[in-house]
């Protein structure tokens, strides 16, 4: 197993508030790695540091052994780092299909092309396949703004998959989904296991234990434990962080 995504003493502070404290996190190639922690622990901040949405105060991020700390997020995306957002971050005026065709075109690194968008029929087919995969069959021509919250979560995932990434950072893909939708999403993520390296931020413990090869726990910006699901289940520090009364805000 080789490390594909790594952080070294990664630190981020907003003024006096330290949201990421000297985090050393390693994602092995092909694993599904869950990142858990109480609300406000800094999970989204860590994902943002990895994807380049935020730049760190100190420390480094490495992708496949290369330092990418200073690369802006679009350059990281081009190197195979895809992500979803906890709060759906989509093109509201586009249809699902148009968003996906754009994402597929973006794999070439630019979109300065002047052919007709509608002319890329093979990309349209691929977009529809992705929509089928995430469970949006038949919804390809619906404008994003008029889709449901659950459909937004599915489209987020489809956009990440469209990049054919090496690593996917999924920030709470199940957030706000109903029971049935959650079950479907878990099923989908299970089918992706092993094909991609996945960092899965999730509050739903059933989902985490069902999907993760390894789990890391974040509390107040610090990585307090990393290990197999069984290790984490029995880890006293984790119980403390989750159920103790000392979680600061």
């Amino acid at each position: 197993m080789t490390a594909i995504l790594e952080t070294r003493a990664l630190r981020k502070s907003f003024g006096g508030l330290v949201v990421t404290r000297d985090v050393d996190l390693t994602l092995e190639e092909g694993e599904t790695h869950a990142l858990i922690g109480p609300n406000g622990a800094g999970k989204t901040s860590l994902v943002n540091l990895l994807s380049g949405t935020l730049s760190p105060t100190a420390g480094d991020v490495l992708l496949a052994g290369e330092i990418i700390t200073r690369l802006p997020s679009h350059r990281r995306a081009r190197r195979g780092l895809a992500r979803t957002f906890q709060i759906s971050t989509l093109f509201d005026s586009f249809t699902a299909e148009k968003s996906l065709v754009l994402a597929l075109l973006a794999r070439q690194g630019h979109c300065y092309r002047l052919g007709r968008m509608a002319g890329f029929s093979c990309l349209r087919d691929e977009a529809r396949r992705l929509l089928d995969l995430v469970g949006l069959t038949g919804r390809n021509l619906v404008p994003t703004a008029s889709m449901s919250h659950g459909e937004h979560r599915q489209l987020e995932l489809a956009l990440a998959l469209a990049a054919s990434p090496k690593v996917m950072l999924l920030d709470e893909p199940m957030a706000g989904l109903g029971g049935e939708e959650t079950a479907k999403m878990i099923e989908l993520l299970r089918s992706l296991r092993g094909r991609y390296t996945i960092l899965l931020v999730e509050h739903d413990m059933d989902a985490v234990f069902a999907l993760a090869d390894r789990i890391s726990v974040l509390a107040e910006g610090r990585l307090i434990a990393t290990g197999s699901p069984a290790d984490i289940r029995s880890n006293a520090g984790v119980r403390q962080a989750y159920f103790g009364d000392d979680d600061g805000d």
């Binding site: 679009h74 971050t89 586009f94 065709v101 092309r113 968008m117």
Partner: peptide, 21 residues
């Protein structure tokens, strides 16, 4: 065109556009 789509995508959500590369 894809160029125009990228421009409008950037209006809708620049963060998503850069996450796409």
């Amino acid at each position: 065109t894809p160029f125009g789509a990228a421009i409008e995508a950037c209006r809708d959500n620049a963060q998503r556009l850069s996450a796409m590369g």
